[in-house]
């Protein structure tokens, strides 16, 4: 009985959606063109995805799988036309096999291409050992490039403003209070994360201040997250009201 009612709700909603679209097209609010059908498809998929808030259902599953399939297909096409074709196929493969090509093949591209192919050999039991060469190259290069730059950008550059003097002359009272708060926040949170000393006495008090700073930071993050998720909902409703129904100008 319950399954039947869910089925009826699904069929009824789809029927209503079809009727609304027929009305919109007949009244000229939606153009009878690819653009019009694109808007209908967008509206339908929006409803299908948000239908999950009511309950998991086949419409949501279709939209979910469609999203995965379309994004993968799109990624393959974009990667071919924006990367593989101009950076590998045109400068290396075309001049190698086409006599009409005026440019000489860029043989230097063979080495990185081989490393890329080796990565895919992980799927072969006999040749998977070759993928280790690629990983060794990636890890070695990555660590060499990243370590000094990350230390410089994320640690040294971040320490500088924390060491700014509270009173050096010229600053406002509020900016001095701000600097003091930052200093207190950095020290108390660092103390909170020292687990080798028992959090009692002075250490315990500073650690509690650190918890307060952390809680305020989590609250700010949560507030921003709520704002972000709402923005997505607002954007979709703007699309439905403006582009689909034509209610908003």
């Amino acid at each position: 009985m319950r399954k039947d009612s869910n089925f009826l709700i699904l069929v009824g909603t789809i029927g209503l959606f079809v009727c609304v679209n027929i009305f919109l097209m007949a009244s000229g609010k939606l153009p009878l063109s690819f653009d019009g059908f694109g808007i209908i498809l967008g509206a339908g998929l929006t409803f299908a995805v948000y239908s999950f808030l009511y309950k998991d259902n086949p419409a949501f599953k279709i939209a979910e799988n469609l999203y995965v399939g379309v994004s993968l297909g799109y990624t393959i096409v974009i990667t071919w036309f924006n990367f593989l074709k101009p950076d590998l196929y045109d400068p290396l493969i075309v001049p190698m096999f086409s006599k009409a090509s005026e440019k000489a093949p860029q043989y230097a591209l063979i080495f990185p291409s081989l490393l890329g192919i080796f990565m895919l050999l992980r799927f072969s039991r006999k040749l998977s050992w070759l993928s280790r060469w690629t990983f060794a190259f990636v890890v070695g290069l990555g660590a060499g490039i990243s370590i000094p730059r990350v230390i410089s950008a994320f640690i040294l550059e971040q320490i500088k403003p924390s060491l700014r003097p509270v009173f050096s002359g010229g600053e406002t009272i509020l900016s001095s209070i701000n600097t003091l708060l930052i200093m207190l926040g950095v020290i108390s949170v660092l103390i909170y994360f020292i687990f080798s000393v028992e959090h009692k006495g002075t250490i315990g008090k500073f650690s509690k201040i650190g918890i307060w700073f952390l809680m305020i930071s989590f609250g700010a993050s949560f507030g921003y997250t709520v704002m972000g998720r709402l923005s997505l909902l607002i954007g979709r409703i703007q699309f439905l009201l403006r582009d689909w129904l034509g209610v908003l100008q």
Binding site: R149, A153, E157, Q158, P161, A220, S221, G228
Partner: peptide
Amino acid sequence: IVYGKEKYKFELGAGCTAVMGPDMYPFLQS
């Protein structure tokens, strides 16, 4: 920031999703 600005010294500004916002404030301060 790490691989571009630090080495090639250009001016950098950013726009980000709200979820990422609080994590970006330390880069404003620095």
